[in-house]
Amino acid sequence: MKPDPDVLRALAPTGVLRAAINLGNPILAATDPGTGQPRGVSVDLARALAGRLGVALEPVVFQAAGRSVEAVTAEEADIGFFAVDPLRGAGIAFTPPYVLIEGCYLVRDASPLRQNEEVDRPGHRVAVGLGSAYDLHLSRELKQAAIVRAATSPTVVDTFVAQGLEVAAGVRQQLEADARRIGGLRLLEGHFMVIRQAMGLPRGRGEAAARYLVDFIEAMKASGFVADALGRHGIEGASVAPAA
């Protein structure tokens, strides 16, 4: 999969691969407590792509998905890892998804809410991470409930608790971890959305570069690389997306 020179220049115009890494989604990336460096499935994929291109990897780390999207759209980074969303597609060319993740609701134990369909009611306030896939999705889908935006996805549950909100929305694993940390909280059964996590690059980088990235991610899924990375990092509740 060694690219031709034009594709290489499109993917790594500065001579290194600048990869936007979002630490706001614990399924994809986190900070290694031993080294202080980012690690996770998205980091492994970025490193593998840099290796195939024959360039060094330069992680560009963000705490929230929205900032990561902005960086790639503005070409401050060459690639990123995002939930596929039509609004983001205006500036980013997405690959097919490589991982599928559940988006869930969390409530207090005493809450009368039992079903996902009960959330969208007058008087309900739903905490989401600003600019996250959940923010974009629920901004379109919720007609009666109000959205309260936390600064980042990892701070959603703390915002939910501090402001006495009715519902928190986010990645199942993050919500489960926060429920254990805080206590007195529970997830509603099932999910309100399935997030398709993909790689992406600035749309202006051209069709050849976008096709190379598509072929790369399909090869990573088919070879077992993505499944191995999920296992290596102890990720549960996410599944490898089917072949495109």
Rank of each mutant, 00 (worst) to 15 (best):
V161K: 00
V60P: 06
G80C: 04
G54I: 06
R149E: 15
A77D: 01
A110E: 15
Y105Q: 03
S111P: 11
A110V: 14
R125I: 12
V156G: 04
R108Y: 14
A74E: 09
Q63N: 15
D135C: 05
F82T: 02
Y134L: 13
A169C: 06
T159E: 12
L53W: 04
T159G: 06
A169L: 05
R180C: 05
G103Y: 09
F160I: 10
V84P: 05
A151D: 13
E102W: 05
E166S: 14
R52A: 14
F94V: 10
G54Q: 01
V167Y: 01
A83P: 11
Q63F: 15
A150L: 09
A77E: 05
D109H: 02
S153H: 14
V119L: 01
E76I: 03
A146D: 15
E102F: 08
A50H: 01
E75Y: 04
Q115G: 04
V128M: 04
R181P: 12
L130R: 08
V156I: 12
Q174H: 13
R67A: 14
F160P: 08
A56Y: 01
E176K: 06
E141P: 05
D135E: 10
V69T: 08
P154M: 09
A179S: 14
A46W: 02
A90N: 10
V148E: 07
R181N: 11
L106H: 02
A93F: 05
D158L: 12
Y134F: 15
L136R: 07
A150Q: 02
A50L: 04
R180N: 08
L142I: 06
D109Y: 04
